[in-house]
């Protein structure tokens, strides 16, 4: 009797747990916990389009990342960030574009448990960015689970930004979550959501207050073949909160864009 129930359950689990090549990512905002095998190298270009802020035409952020597996559970990567922003000029009514170099980052990821073998996969992630105008430290706790055709990932993120050009400090708390379903070995579809917010610099002895925040969600698709994979998402802002939200409008378009779209690629070298 027990066995009769177990068999279909086991079959269900086996369906769709398939190898993903070269540490394939299935989401664009949420990280999964897998790390590259020692000595394995991957090149990862990213592009993020940020569309539709108030008075804001468009922004594109690019990143080129070079990842290396160091041990069974530790991987590191270096990347460069650059972008362009186009802002509507109220005087000329034209679009002013500026290019920016956001600096060089170093990223470390330590896998603590496995998403297939253990009840949940978990990893710690640390990132340092040194730019011409700012330094940034970002820490993430990653949790994920792969079971049958399902794939779930949740990230908790803390980011500290110090802009020495303008003497501004920002604390950001973020959370992302994603659910994916494998339609075939290397094809998955899913939904991804993010909550971004910025907390005012903590005055000594005072408490931090929320400046602005926004929630995004939208579809994500990933596909891999041979030595490469690609993941893409389009996530509109669903809800804005904090000081900049215009009552009745529900969105914060002063600090956050209306839509983010991101494409990631990975090429196994």
């Amino acid at each position: 009797m027990m066995l009769r129930r177990l068999l279909p359950a086991a079959a269900l689990c086996l369906l769709g747990v398939q190898p993903a090549l070269a540490n394939e990512r299935h989401f664009t905002q949420s990280y999964e916990t897998a790390t590259l095998a020692p000595g394995v190298v991957e090149l990862e270009p990213w592009a993020t389009a940020r569309l539709g802020r108030d008075g804001y035409y468009t922004g594109i952020d690019n990143r080129l990342e070079f990842e290396v597996g160091l041990t069974d559970r530790l991987q590191t990567s270096m990347y460069v960030n650059w972008g362009v922003e186009g802002v509507r000029n109220p005087l000329t009514k034209g679009i002013d574009t500026t290019a920016n170099h956001r600096g060089v980052s170093s990223e470390w990821k330590l896998r603590l448990s496995d998403s297939v073998a253990d009840p949940v996969g978990s990893a710690l992630y640390l990132e340092f960015t040194l730019g011409p105008e700012e330094v940034e430290i970002e820490g993430k706790v990653l949790v994920d689970k792969r079971s049958g055709p399902w794939n779930v990932a949740v990230n908790g993120i803390y980011e500290f930004e110090h802009n020495y050009a303008e003497s501004i400090e920002e604390h950001k708390l973020q959370a992302t979550a994603a659910v994916g379903y494998f339609l075939a070995d290397h094809l998955s579809v899913g939904l991804e959501a993010m909550d971004f917010n910025v907390v005012e610099p903590q005055v000594p002895g005072g408490s931090a207050t929320l400046l602005h925040g926004a929630i995004y969600a939208g579809p994500v698709l990933s596909y891999g073949l041979g030595n490469w994979w690609v993941a893409a998402s389009v996530t509109p802002q669903l809800y804005g909160y904090g000081k900049a939200v215009v009552p009745g409008r529900g969105l914060d378009l002063q600090d956050f864009e209306r839509v983010q779209a991101r494409v990631l690629m990975g090429v196994h070298l």
């Binding site: 897998a34 095998a37 597996g69 069974d72 496995d114 297939v116």
Partner: peptide, 16 residues
């Protein structure tokens, strides 16, 4: 198996 075979792809369940 868990430490050495999970780097490039998700672990393949043995029963597969």
């Amino acid at each position: 198996y868990v430490s050495r075979c999970a780097g490039c792809h998700a672990l393949v369940p043995p029963a597969k």
